[in-house]
Simulated assay, not measured.
Amino acid sequence: MTAYAPSLPADLVERWDIQSAELIADTRTSLVHRVIRRDGSGAISKQLKPEGLHELSGVDFLDWRQGSGSVRVLDRVETACLLEDAGTLMLKDYRLAHGEDAANDIILSVLAELHLASADTPTDSLVPLRSHFRPVFDRASREDRPELSAALTYSACIADDLLSSQTDIRPLHGDLHHENIVSGSERGWLAIDPQGLLGDPAYDVANVFGNPDGAFTDIIDPRRIIRLVDLFAPAIGCTREKILRYAIAHAGLSICWSLEGGDRISGEGNAMERFAFLNVARRMLEEPAVSL
Rank of each mutant, 00 (worst) to 15 (best):
D221S: 12
S291A: 14
D120Q: 14
A159C: 05
G210E: 05
D75M: 05
A119R: 12
R95I: 01
N211S: 09
L285K: 04
A5V: 12
R240N: 11
L253F: 10
L190P: 01
V280Y: 06
G267L: 10
I255R: 00
P222I: 05
R134M: 05
A249C: 12
L126V: 07
Y154F: 15
G199C: 15
L244N: 02
S118A: 05
I225C: 01
D124F: 12
R240P: 01
E143V: 03
D105Q: 15
S291R: 15
S165C: 13
M1H: 08
L172W: 05
P146R: 15
L82H: 06
L48Y: 03
T167Y: 10
D161C: 12
I220G: 02
E14A: 15
S70T: 11
L8Y: 06
L82R: 02
A102I: 11
R187V: 08
R139K: 10
A25K: 05
G42M: 00
V13P: 01
R170T: 14
T121Y: 10
R130L: 07
V280K: 01
S266L: 12
S125I: 04
I107F: 13
L129M: 10
R227P: 03
H177K: 00
N270L: 11
D204H: 06
G237E: 13
A119P: 11
D213N: 09
D63G: 04
Q19H: 13
R170Q: 15
D160M: 10
M272D: 05
G52M: 04
L83P: 01
G210F: 04
H178S: 08
R245P: 00
L48A: 05
K46W: 00
D63V: 01
V35S: 06
M284K: 02
T239D: 10
L82Q: 04
E287D: 14
